Amino acid sequence: MSVNETSTPEEWLAAATVDPSVGALRPDYRALLVVAEGLRPGPSDAFSEELLAEAEAKACDPDQHPHITEWHEAFRAFGAKPKRTRPSVDALLRRAPEGLPRVDRLTDVYNAVSVAHVLPLGGEDLDLYVGPARLTRADGSETFALMSGGEPVTENPRAGEVVWRDDEGVTCRRWNWRQCVRTRLSQDTTRAFFVLDALGALDDTAVDEAGRALTAALVASSPGATTATRLVRPSA
């Protein structure tokens, strides 16, 4: 049994941190963290299709939205090239005119909320997470698990890169660019952890609205599911 299974969602969320080094890059950064339990995983279905279709219909132009512009600035601040490795919501918005990806019902839900509310949003399987979540700047020795050519591969982030990590390694590189395969959501996920990333162009009211949209969609798609949330900022 993992430590995450022995703590309450509120206790686990309370242990999550954003390192001061991240705040030095973007003092305006906040993350709304959401834990959901009792989820019903599965393939994409009519419910997730409706959410994605609505998001596609209202998708904005990423080149014209101030929140996307700020995320490009944030990526450049730690040495990333945002037109090569785009913030996740930017990449999704650019796919919207031709159709957002259909992955599975849980991933589809959070992708739809990300596009509709124009903020990066990722999800992880909480039962595969090891210890508390923390956002920090990498020293370059951390491990990052991915698949390449159908084979498992381990990479290391660049020193100074902003990463989400747990006790075992990096779970998401370049703030919200790419998630690892170790903790990604699957059709077996019943407990999940979601991160909604925000910079100054998106005020706390807008972040809260996005969080409410996510939790409402999760509960609607998984009757009986429960959620807990916490807004975190860089620690002093």
Rank of each mutant, 00 (worst) to 15 (best):
V3A: 11
V3Y: 01
N4G: 10
T6C: 05
S7G: 03
T8M: 07
P9C: 03
P9G: 03
E10W: 00
E10D: 13
E10T: 14
W12I: 12
A15G: 06
A16C: 15
V18Y: 01
G23M: 08
A24L: 12
R26W: 00
D28G: 06
Y29W: 10
A31S: 07
L32V: 06
E37W: 00
L39E: 08
G42N: 03
G42A: 05
D45H: 09
D45F: 03
A46W: 01
S48M: 07
S48W: 08
L52V: 09
E54G: 08
E54S: 13
A55S: 11
A55F: 11
E56G: 02
A57E: 06
D61K: 12
P62N: 03
D63A: 14
Q64T: 11
Q64R: 13
H67W: 05
T69I: 04
E70C: 07
E70R: 14
W71C: 11
W71H: 13
E73C: 06
E73M: 05
E73F: 00
F75N: 09
R76W: 00
A77L: 09
F78L: 10
K81R: 14
K81D: 15
R84E: 08
R84A: 09
S88D: 01
R94M: 14
E98F: 04
L100D: 02
L100A: 01
V103I: 14
V103P: 04
A116I: 00
H117C: 08
V118D: 07
L119I: 05
G122Q: 06
G123V: 12
G123I: 13
E124T: 14
D127I: 09
D127E: 13
D127G: 12
V130I: 13
R134V: 10
T136Q: 02
A138N: 05
D139R: 14
E142L: 15
E142H: 11
A145I: 07
A145W: 10
L146P: 03
S148Y: 03
G149N: 05
G149E: 02
G149K: 09
G149P: 03
P152N: 01
V153R: 15
N156D: 06
V162G: 04
V163S: 01
W164R: 14
D167Y: 04
E168S: 14
G169W: 11
V170C: 06
T171R: 08
C172V: 15
R173Q: 13
R174S: 07
W177Q: 11
W177V: 12
V181H: 00
R182L: 11
T183H: 01
R184H: 02
D188N: 10
D188P: 00
T190I: 14
R191A: 08
F194H: 09
F194M: 12
L196A: 13
L196Q: 14
L196E: 11
A198L: 09
L199W: 03
G200R: 15
A201M: 11
A201D: 07
A206I: 01
V207F: 06
A210F: 10
G211H: 13
R212G: 05
A213K: 12
T215F: 10
A217P: 12
L218A: 01
A220R: 14
P223F: 05
P223D: 03
A225M: 13
A228I: 05
T229E: 15
T229I: 05
R230M: 13
R233F: 06
P234D: 02
S235T: 15
